[in-house]
């Protein structure tokens, strides 16, 4: 069982939405891999960074893409001056350090790539490195965390059931209004009244997901809008740049989004 080491540096700010921190810690103590599902910009990366710092663990993040190979994760031989040198990949490095390996957007990776995770994510907790013949055993503090965005538009991209079923899973969504309010104020220093208007606006815009918009407006975009407002930009313009334009390319949709923004921040 793991016991958290004292946090070396102050953990990045993370406003809990529920008891996800306790859940994560329990999973770490029991040496279980974790899958985090949630829309883009809802705080997944921030959460993992926060937990890693809290538990005093090194964090190694890999953004997955469809060209990511098993060797990219595990490591490869490089040719140096007339000789070959083995070079650990991020997964192996995290394993040796006993830290957290975080695979962001894991569904983007090819299925034959995610298969290397299998021996690590059952009770063996092993990583066989075929090319060097090494068999690495995961130290107790090592933890594997993966995340992806389960929106239906990604229906063609899902995890293999056999991969999926190796993780305990947590579902994230955009924070409740009060939590989001706290996030905005803490992250940007914006005044409460304006933060509240932004959060209400986000609620209005999120009703459109799946109908008029493919993706919901994220907490990340709200933070952007608040930052622009803090820099002295008019709320109107800040919302247009940070909320309306990033969400759509269609003129009618943007015009309607601006009308919705007007209900919170009127044009002068």
């Amino acid at each position: 069982m793991n016991a958290p080491a004292p946090a070396a540096v102050a953990a990045p700010f993370y406003q809990a939405q529920g008891d996800e921190c306790r859940l994560f810690e329990a999973a770490w103590q029991q040496q279980l891999p974790v899958l985090i599902k949630g829309p883009t910009g809802c705080g997944k990366t921030r959460f993992v960074a926060h937990m890693a710092a809290r538990l005093g663990l090194p964090l190694i993040t890999v953004s997955c893409h469809d060209d990511l190979s098993a060797a990219d994760l595990v490591g490869r031989h490089l040719i140096g001056d007339g000789q070959t040198v083995w070079c650990d990949g991020p997964l192996t490095r995290a394993l040796r350090q006993g830290g957290i390996c975080y695979l962001d957007e894991v569904v983007e990776a090819r299925k034959d790539t995610t298969v290397v995770l299998h021996p690590l994510t059952d009770d063996r907790r092993m990583l066989p490195i075929e090319r060097t013949g090494e068999l690495l055993e995961a130290p107790p503090s090592f933890m594997l965390v993966v995340s992806y965005n389960p929106g239906y538009q990604h229906v063609l991209k899902t995890l293999k059931p056999s991969t999926r079923q190796r993780f305990v899973a947590m579902s994230f969504d955009f924070p409740a209004p009060d939590v989001e309010l706290a996030v905005l104020m803490q992250e940007t220093g914006i005044a409460e009244s304006q933060a509240r208007q932004l959060v209400t606006l986000a609620g209005q815009l999120r009703r459109l997901t799946g109908y008029d918009l493919d993706e919901s407006v994220s907490t990340r975009l709200l933070v952007y809008a608040a930052k622009l407002m803090m820099s002295g930009m008019s709320p109107q313009q800040a919302c247009r740049t940070a909320l309306a334009e990033p969400l759509s390319d269609e003129a009618d949709t943007i015009a309607a989004l601006l009308a919705v923004i007007d209900t919170q921040f009127p044009a002068r």
């Binding site: 209005q204 109908y211 009618d252 309607a256 009308a259």
Partner: peptide
């Protein structure tokens, strides 16, 4: 063109 989106954003039944 904008009305349905706006109505939904205001909480109207989609």
């Amino acid at each position: 063109g904008q009305a349905p989106l706006f109505f939904r954003a205001m909480g109207g039944d989609p």
